[in-house]
Simulated scan of single mutants.
Amino acid sequence: MNGEEDHIHILFDAPPQINLANTINSYKTVTSRYIRKEFSEELSTFYWKPYFWNRSYMILTTGGATIDVIKKYIENQGE
């Protein structure tokens, strides 16, 4: 996991029967609650809306790239 100023990249492995939309929604819900609770004072001047994450997301498959190539790409985000 790594990111840039306005988005994050997360590499995860999921079997085909997993509903990715539900997985992403759950991840965003849990992390939003945690971040707002743990950093409420720091965020109070920046986030006044009732939601933390944007509703959109993007999921890509790794295609023919190796896991090492994908990990390196994610690790180099923001540089």
Rank of each mutant, 00 (worst) to 15 (best):
D68F: 00
E75D: 09
I18D: 09
I18P: 02
R36A: 00
T23S: 11
T62L: 11
Y73D: 01
L11V: 08
E75N: 12
I59Y: 00
A21K: 12
I67Y: 02
S44P: 07
T45I: 12
Y57G: 05
K37M: 08
A14R: 06
V30P: 00
N22W: 08
T31Q: 02
V30A: 12
Q17S: 14
I35H: 00
E79I: 13
A65D: 10
H7I: 05
Y73P: 00
N19D: 15
I10Y: 06
W48Y: 10
D68E: 15
E42D: 14
Y47S: 10
S32Q: 03
E79N: 12
K49E: 14
M1R: 09
I8H: 05
A21H: 09
K37H: 12
K49Y: 10
T31C: 02
F46E: 13
P50F: 04
L60F: 14
N54M: 12
E41R: 15
D68G: 09
Y27G: 02
R36W: 03
S40W: 07
P16N: 11
K72N: 13
T66C: 04
Y57A: 05
Y57D: 07
Y73S: 01
I8T: 10
T66F: 05
Y34S: 11
T23Q: 10
P15K: 11
D6I: 02
I67G: 00
T29Y: 12
S26I: 03
L43M: 08
T23N: 04
I70T: 03
E5M: 11
V30D: 01
P15Q: 09
S32A: 15
K71F: 04
T45N: 15
K28E: 01
I10N: 01
L43P: 07
I70A: 02
N54S: 15
Y27S: 06
F12R: 01
S32P: 04
H9R: 03
K37I: 00
K28N: 03
S26V: 02
Q77M: 05
I10C: 09
N2I: 05
N2S: 09
D6F: 04
F52Q: 08
T31N: 00
E41T: 15
W48A: 03
G63P: 03
G63N: 06
P50Q: 08
H9Y: 07
Y51I: 09
K37R: 14
S32M: 03
V69H: 07
L11D: 03
K49I: 08
E5F: 10
T61L: 11
N19Q: 12
M1I: 03
T31M: 04
H7K: 07
K71E: 10
Q17G: 01
